[in-house]
Computed example of a mutant assay.
Amino acid sequence: MKYRGSCHCGKIAFEVEGNLEQVMDCNCSLCSRRGYLLWFVPRDQLHLETPESDLSTYRFNRMHIAHYFCATCGCGPFGEALDPKGNAMAAVNVRCLEDVPLDGLKVVKVDGRSF
Rank of each mutant, 00 (worst) to 15 (best):
M1I: 07
K2S: 08
K2Y: 13
K2A: 13
K2I: 13
K2C: 09
G5W: 03
H8A: 12
G10W: 10
G10E: 12
G10A: 05
A13D: 00
E15A: 11
V16Y: 08
N19W: 05
L20Y: 07
L20T: 07
L20E: 07
E21R: 13
Q22G: 02
V23N: 10
V23R: 06
M24N: 15
M24I: 14
D25F: 00
C26S: 11
C26M: 04
N27L: 08
N27H: 06
C28G: 12
C28N: 12
S29Q: 06
C31H: 05
S32P: 07
S32G: 12
S32M: 09
R34C: 07
R34M: 09
G35V: 08
Y36A: 15
L37Q: 11
L38C: 14
W39P: 10
P42M: 04
R43I: 08
R43A: 07
R43W: 01
R43G: 03
H47G: 04
H47T: 02
L48G: 03
E49A: 08
T50F: 03
P51G: 04
P51I: 05
E52V: 02
E52K: 03
E52A: 01
E52I: 00
S53G: 00
S53M: 02
D54N: 11
D54G: 10
D54W: 06
D54L: 04
L55C: 06
L55H: 06
S56N: 04
Y58H: 03
Y58F: 04
R59G: 14
R59I: 15
F60A: 15
N61W: 14
R62Y: 12
A66Y: 15
Y68G: 01
F69I: 09
C73F: 03
C73P: 02
C73L: 02
C73K: 00
G74V: 00
G76K: 05
G76C: 06
P77E: 01
P77A: 10
F78V: 00
F78R: 00
E80R: 03
E80S: 06
A81S: 12
L82G: 03
D83T: 05
P84L: 01
P84C: 02
P84F: 00
K85P: 10
A88R: 10
A88G: 06
M89A: 10
A90L: 05
A90G: 06
A90P: 09
A91M: 06
V92P: 02
V92E: 01
V92F: 04
V92Q: 00
N93W: 09
N93H: 13
V94N: 12
V94D: 10
R95F: 09
R95L: 10
L97N: 05
L97S: 08
E98D: 09
V100Q: 02
V100T: 04
P101L: 01
P101G: 07
L102I: 03
L102M: 04
D103W: 07
G104S: 14
G104V: 14
K106H: 13
K106M: 15
K106A: 15
K109E: 10
K109D: 10
K109Q: 13
K109A: 05
D111F: 14
G112V: 13
S114R: 00
